[in-house]
Nucleic acid binder design. Structure first.
Length: 491
RNA sequence: GGCCCCAUCGUCUAUCGGUUAGGACGGCACUCUUUCAAGGUGCAGAGACGGGUUCGAUUCCCGUUGGGGCUACCA
């Protein structure tokens, strides 16, 4: 593809909140499209609503996109900086006759709207100011009377060949003469968007289904401005479990929320991609590169999708166990540090051990938080014993203490500090006592980790090291024999 | 109300006129096993309804119903 016809797409959020999962999904599809076709992915912050826009939101959007690795190719465009061009484009519409001045006040309009509603009629601006005498319009405008610029919607039908849907058509009679420039000379959304998309030479506009009724208006503006039309594609909405539009009451809706819940960006991207797109066949778990490879607009879905957190978690678990420890490390390490388990320096100084531990833990975790939770016994000096586990595996205090003491002795006397040798020795202990392996291993697991869930017990011993293993066994024995009254023991 | 969009298991989806309608999540059972995950095996679970077109419709067309979106001098 020649550079001149490489697609240019954009993600254009308004900075009035955090980066929403719906927005992230829109950004992802645009990004995938651009990467797949060797085009450019641009970012435009639609901050023209000064009252609702905040710098904090803008930062949150950047942060969310960075986290997801959805990098944009050119300088960020701030819509607010282009106000003068928007205004000029709107005035060009007035000059070439596509728009006209309207002196109706918001209060008047509101009243007429209410009247129409009372009569159960659909309200549509009746174009009365377009019928004003030309001289009168000039006089009132010259006198500084407050007015807006309205676009004069022509007769006919406005249709386009949507990238997701087939042909979408709106009878122009259903489109009212919409405002393009407010009385304070600031542009209305559709005006600003079209002006910017033209200036940015956007070739494909992919956005949520909720914009579908803006599209005919925008097409009309492109034509009136004499600009070439981009292709439009309308992505299905994302709904909550109850089938309603995803909102705060559905729980986490910001991508940052999921980041803090221990979701991996790769998993988030993969999950989001499958909400409204399918590579065909049974393909589900994919890396970002694979998604770029497989992406095509043919796989885009028309139906709204429901956001199922359960599947996201599963997806995260898949990515967690498939990723190599080295790849995972930069993501998990900060969480370990944040949890106060170790410093970054400590992790770096024992990197080999730490990566080995990560390999052990990632398999049975669904989130980064799970990994951190399970990692605690390998870092902490002291461990807490899980009450339920104690009730289950240490029920017979005296008997358990004996077995643990014997276990400690066996391990201590082992010259060969390898899993195979440990297992052989401890199984033998079980046989001698006439008990199954579980009766040896479970109390030991509890003594070493404080939990009833862990990696294979000998992996645990190896990860802990001889010193700590023996110390923890000793502490558990003392506790069971009444030496320690309460819940924890020296690590 | 008007306009527009949508419609396969509870959920995400495959199917591009001919299939016992496939897979995944979740659920349940079994299996593996020193625990938990992971893995393996199996079970339950879907073409909203009514008309056409066709030798044949989940698939194409129309209608109904249902769901969603928009309907500002917000974006």
């Amino acid at each position: 593809m020649a550079a001149s016809d490489a697609p240019r797409v954009r993600f254009a959020p308004s900075p009035t909140g955090y980066l929403h999962v719906g927005g992230a999904r829109t950004a992802l599809f645009n990004w995938l499209f651009a990467r797949k076709l060797g085009g450019a992915f641009l970012l435009r912050i639609e901050d023209t609503d000064r009252a609702r826009s905040t710098d904090e939101s803008t930062r949150a959007i950047f942060e969310g996109l960075h986290w997801l690795a959805l990098e944009w190719d050119e300088e960020v465009v701030y819509q607010g900086a282009n106000l003068e061009r928007h205004r000029q484009d709107a005035r060009r519409l007035l000059e070439n006759g596509a728009a006209y001045r309207c002196f109706c006040t918001p209060a008047e309009l509101d009243e007429r709207r209410k009247d129409a509603e009372a009569r159960k009629e659909a309200f549509k601006y009746d174009r009365r100011c377009d019928r004003l005498d030309r001289a009168e319009v000039e006089r009132r405008a010259a006198a500084g009377e407050s007015h807006v610029l309205r676009f004069r919607v022509p007769d006919g039908t406005t249709a386009w060949d949507d990238m997701v849907h087939e042909t979408v058509a709106f009878p122009n009679k259903d489109i009212e003469d919409f405002v393009v420039l407010r009385s304070d000379a600031t542009p209305i959304y559709n005006m600003a968007v079209v002006s910017d998309d033209i200036a940015m030479r956007i070739t494909h506009v992919m956005r949520g289904d909720d914009h579908i009724s803006n599209t005919p208006k925008q097409i009309l503006l492109y034509r009136a401005l004499g600009a070439p039309l981009p292709r439009f594609g309308h992505l299905p909405m994302i709904h909550g479990l109850d089938g309603k539009k995803l909102s705060k009451r559905h729980g986490a809706t910001a991508v940052g929320d999921y980041r803090h819940l221990g979701i991996l960006p790769q998993a988030m991207l993969n999950f989001l991609a499958l909400l409204g797109w399918s590579p065909g066949g049974d393909r589900e778990v994919m890396t970002l590169d694979e998604m770029v490879e497989l992406f095509s607009v043919e796989g885009l879905q028309r139906k709204a999708a429901i956001f199922d957190p359960k599947k996201l978690e599963w997806m995260n678990g898949q990515h967690l166990s498939r990723m190599g420890a080295a790849e995972l490390e930069p993501i998990v390490a900060p969480a370990i540090v944040a949890a106060g388990l170790a410093s970054a320096d400590e992790l770096a100084s024992r990197r080999e051990w730490w990566l080995g531990l990560l390999d052990l833990l990632k398999v049975r975790a669904r989130t980064v938080d799970d990994v951190v939770r399970q990692a605690r016994p390998y870092f902490a000096e002291e461990i807490d014993y899980d009450a339920e586990a104690v009730a289950k595996h240490w029920k017979d205090a005296a008997g358990t203490a004996d077995i643990l003491a014997a276990t400690g002795e066996r391990l201590a006397s082992l010259d060969d500090w390898r899993a195979e040798a440990m297992e052989e020795s401890l199984r033998q202990l079980g046989e001698e006592r006439g008990i199954g392996g579980g009766k040896v291993f479970q109390p030991l697991r509890l003594a070493l980790t404080g939990m009833s869930v862990s990696p294979g017990i000998f992996d645990v011993v190896l990860a802990l090291g001889r010193e700590r293993t023996l110390r923890r066994i000793d502490a558990a024995v003392r506790r069971l024999r009444g030496g320690v009254a309460a819940g924890n023991a020296a690590g």
